[in-house]
């Protein structure tokens, strides 16, 4: 029996592991190595050990508001990521709940309705937003024809956040849907039978049980958002950078692959710390239950 179990386990794990290890772990090791090498004019690396990249990343710059400009960009990216995650959760949670309360057919249709806009093209959608938010765009044309003053929206952080939320919303709704759909409403009834109010039921029963979906959705939205670099360019006018822009610059015009790699290594480490913490908490919860 034990042997059979092992067989099943390896069969389940093998294809996924093969892909992840070959196409993600191996190249990531390459990136770690790059971050300790010497930059080459024209891209790529010179195979000579160097700590320049990390020294640059952690160097002190008296002109900057924080340690240096890179930290400023990291902090802005995380702040925008949090804001986007929060908005997506606030909109996505009730939306996912609404969907799961429909009949099976309606449920599926609604789910598809939410994802179908994303089968057009990312750039096309973002440009459509630009058209809506432009100085001479849809909203402003309507405003001015109604006799109101035009509001500058394009090339502001507001437009960037709109674009980020738009791009990330389905990544919140889908995991939430997956979690909520499996929810056993008997728990709610049981709690109500015991005289609990709706708010209490939500706080004590509903929310904790849907937490895995909340965590997964938030994680996906946050991670995908902070990796963005097209939205700040198109809707934000490219005036301020996110980490994605910083990285694109290093692997692009700056020809500084080691520095780009170092930024990536630090970024991935920061994210991994968060995720390992989450896995720990999960493991502890499992152990206690």
């Amino acid at each position: 029996m034990e042997k059979r179990r092992k067989l099943v386990l390896s069969a389940l794990l093998l294809p996924g592991a093969l892909w992840i290890v070959l196409l993600y772990v191996a190249p990531s090791i390459l990136i770690v190595i790059y971050s300790f090498l010497t930059r080459q004019m024209g891209g790529g690396v010179i195979w000579a050990f160097s700590l320049d990249a990390y020294q640059k990343l952690f160097s002190y710059n008296p002109d900057s508001r924080f340690i240096n400009d890179f930290v400023v960009i990291f902090l802005r990216t995380f702040w925008w990521g949090l804001l986007t995650t929060f908005i997506c959760l606030a909109v996505g949670y009730p939306l996912a709940f609404f969907i799961t309360r429909q009949k099976a057919g309606t449920r599926a249709v609604l789910l598809f309705l939410i994802i179908i806009p994303f089968w057009t093209n990312f750039l096309v959608r973002t440009y459509a937003w630009k058209f809506i938010l432009n100085n001479n765009g849809l909203i402003n044309v309507i405003l001015s024809s109604l006799g109101f003053r035009r509001i500058p929206m394009i090339n502001t952080p507001f437009a960037v956040i709109i674009g980020l939320v738009y791009g990330a919303l389905p990544f919140m709704v889908l995991p939430l849907y997956a979690a909520l759909d499996n929810f056993n409403y008997r728990y709610v009834e049981a709690a109500q039978d015991l005289g609990a109010s709706y708010l209490t039921v939500f706080r004590k029963v509903f929310w904790p049980l849907t937490l895995p979906g909340v965590v997964t959705g938030s994680l996906l939205v946050f991670i995908l958002t902070i990796g963005q670099f097209v939205v700040p360019v198109i809707l934000g006018g490219g005036k301020v950078s996110m980490i994605g822009n910083l990285l694109a610059q290093q692997f692009g015009m700056a020809f500084d692959w080691p520095f780009g790699s170092a930024i990536a290594v630090v970024f991935i480490l920061l994210m991994m710390i968060g995720i390992v913490y989450y896995i720990r908490v999960e493991a502890r919860k499992e152990a206690s239950s």
Binding site: V25, I223, F229, L247
Partner: peptide
């Protein structure tokens, strides 16, 4: 989680 957190350009 690596494929999810790895920035695309990297």
């Amino acid at each position: 989680y690596l494929p999810i957190i790895n920035p695309e350009i990297v």
